[in-house]
Design a protein around this nucleic acid. Structure first.
Length: 313
DNA sequence: AAGACGAAAGTGGTTGA
DNA sequence: TCAACAACTTTCGTCTT
């Protein structure tokens, strides 16, 4: 019964394809596209996902988890879920409320405000989230990672780690942790530069988060830096791929332990760029990798020697 | 003149007693 | 808590292209 109603409604929405006037329109909820099954024309790229909110494994689960309300997000201090009581003393027909009702609504509003933003925790969160917004947009951090940062921060609050530390520092550390976890490498320096927190404090907060929240984050893999550095140096995909291969070889030879991953990435890029005939100077590479020429040099000497790579000048 | 190279001294963080 | 330690940086003079 329900289902029939729904499909009827769907038919209303779907028109004929303007290109070939076929009615065979395919809806791809995964990609959020509507395409014509006949000629392949994409009709609409931003179809609203009408599927359930979460993954469901049984039919029962699927029915229970229908989509309601706006999607929740961790980046708004109350996850976007709190109720709003509007300030007009009117009911929803537009009639003025009786004095008794009005007093009641007034009290409700008052408590609403008190419980919502005015508790110290939420004020903290509200401030933290605006800082998160600012930082992540300056650093160009993708949405998913931003959400992870928010989750870290919330957990940090739960464990009472914030008191006595600056919100800015903890937010910055949360972002760094999220970046590491989600493999969107940003260095401590980069984050420190955009926040008012110095590197040292940031590092301390980061380690605190790791320890107190029991997060295991794999050590940064130099390979993850290659696409970003490569793009900044305007290197071809071939060179980047080759650089990644060099890193892999280096790891097999046990050359990566204890070394600065950005330095390794820089050295492998230097080598691969030469091998692919796209030579970049050590200084250029050192600059985008935020290490010194000397480090690039040392690493690359080491790699060339240990891996028997021959470089023609 | 710019880039590459390497030595020497200094710095900040980790480790083990 | 402190010293030893490895990795990295800064600085600078020399060599190569």
């Amino acid at each position: 019964m329900e289902k029939e109603k729904k499909s009827e409604k769907m038919d209303d929405i779907i028109q004929v394809c303007p290109e070939c006037s076929s009615t065979n329109i395919i809806i791809d909820n995964q990609r959020g596209e509507r395409t014509c099954g006949n000629c392949g024309l994409v009709l609409d790229e931003r179809e609203i996902d009408q599927g359930p909110e979460w993954r469901a494994f049984t039919i029962d689960e699927r029915n229970k988890r229908s989509r309601v309300g706006s999607p929740i997000t961790f980046t708004i201090h109350d996850k976007g879920l709190s109720t709003m009581i509007d300030w007009h003393d009117k009911d929803h027909y537009g009639k003025t409320l009786s004095p008794k009702k009005r007093a009641q609504v007034y009290r409700m509003r008052k408590w609403q405000m008190r419980t919502r933003v005015h508790s110290s925790l939420d004020r903290n969160l509200a401030f933290a989230m605006s800082e998160l917004d600012r930082l992540s947009s300056q650093l160009g951090i993708p949405r998913g990672v931003k959400e992870s940062s928010a989750v870290f921060y919330r957990r940090a609050i739960e464990r009472k780690l914030i008191r006595g530390r600056s919100i800015e520092a903890m937010i910055a550390a949360s972002i760094y942790a999220a970046c590491r976890l989600r493999k969107v490498p940003r260095t401590l320096d980069e984050i420190a530069r955009h926040s008012r927190v110095n590197r040292k404090e940031l590092g301390r907060c980061y380690r605190l988060i790791l320890r107190e929240l029991n997060v295991r984050i794999p050590i940064a893999n130099p390979v993850e830096f290659i696409p970003r550095f490569g793009a900044e140096l305007d290197l071809s995909g071939r060179s980047q791929k080759r650089a990644a291969e060099i890193i892999k070889m280096a790891r097999e030879h046990g050359l990566t332990a204890g070394k600065d991953p950005t330095g390794l990435a820089a050295a492998s890029i230097y080598i691969s760029a030469i091998l692919e005939g796209e030579r970049r100077t050590q200084r250029e590479i050192a600059e985008v990798a935020h290490v010194t020429e000397v480090t690039v040099r040392n690493r690359y000497k080491e790699l060339v020697k240990e891996l028997n790579i021959k470089i023609e000048v």
